[in-house]
Simulated assay, not measured.
Amino acid sequence: MKARPVLPGFGLTMGFTVLYLGILVLLPLSMVLIKSASLGLSGFMETVTEPRAIAAYKISFGTAFAAACVNACFGLLIAWVLTRYQFPGRKLLDSLVDLPFALPTAVAGISLTTLYASNGWIGQFFSFKIAYTPIGIMIALVFIGLPFVIRMVQPVLENMEKEVEEVSAILGASRWKTFRYVIFPEILPALMTGFSLSFARALGEYGSVVFISGNMPFKTEIAPLVIMTKLEQYDYAGATAIATVMLLFTFFILLMINILQWWSGRKYMNG
């Protein structure tokens, strides 16, 4: 006799899941691949390897990776402060973490450009340019990606049993050793997940970057802007070719991060 599942409705929910993934995820992605295939192999390679496109890849991936690294460090620090300390205004600060999620990206881009321009409130105090440089792009990507790390690490820190840390201190471990060998292995999977989400969001970001970047080809032009430029020129096949490269690179990097996350978790469990 076939065993019945404990929770009913598996067939219906599975059907909705497959329908959702098929219509909203797989179908649009497949259309990108099909449209770019209309160029042919030689046309595709010529489009995605043109000097302007390669320069845009370097800017997009370089600034996205740098911003994700900054977010991983400071996101962990902010999550630690919000979960381990009580101070006036903590709840207000905790609610402000989600502001980049709710704020329109164009508003964020204009605000950051105003602040970090050469005559801006913050930019005027620096001897070098921030806005219209890769540094400005990285700042915008840090702004929109920081909440991902905080919201992934914060619940893990809140659910950790403090008794484990107390036992570590009783056994003579220093605060640094307690953090390194007791706390950090627990939060590492969540931290890497936040890093990957921040990195993926930064790669596809357009609204908050287009204002502060200056959009100078070979200097501050990002790959999403190249795609938009080709779309405005009705070069749909060329735009989808660039999008395909971004999609494949993003998928590969996220796959590597997930494998590393799985390996680190397995290593921690084994010993």
Rank of each mutant, 00 (worst) to 15 (best):
M1G: 13
P5Q: 02
V6I: 10
F10V: 02
L12N: 01
T13D: 00
G15S: 06
V18D: 01
Y20V: 10
L29R: 06
M31P: 07
V32F: 13
K35N: 13
S36Q: 09
A37V: 01
G43F: 12
E46M: 09
P51G: 08
A53E: 09
K58L: 15
A64P: 03
A66E: 09
C69K: 02
G75I: 07
L76H: 04
K91S: 14
L92I: 14
P100Q: 09
P100V: 11
F101G: 02
A106V: 15
G109K: 06
T114N: 12
Y116R: 01
F125I: 07
S127A: 14
A131V: 02
Y132V: 11
Y132W: 04
G136M: 06
I139Q: 03
A140Q: 03
L141I: 09
V142C: 14
F143D: 02
I144H: 00
P147I: 07
V149H: 02
V149I: 13
M152S: 13
N159M: 10
K162I: 11
V164L: 15
E166V: 11
G172D: 05
T178R: 00
I183D: 09
F184K: 07
A190L: 04
A190W: 01
T193K: 09
L197Q: 10
L197K: 00
S198P: 04
A202M: 02
G204A: 07
E205K: 02
Y206E: 10
V210P: 07
I212G: 02
I212D: 03
S213G: 08
E221C: 04
P224E: 01
V226E: 12
M228G: 08
T229Y: 14
K230C: 10
L231H: 05
A237G: 07
G238I: 05
V245G: 09
L248D: 04
T250P: 03
F251Y: 13
L255Q: 12
L260P: 05
W263L: 12
S264W: 06
R266A: 13
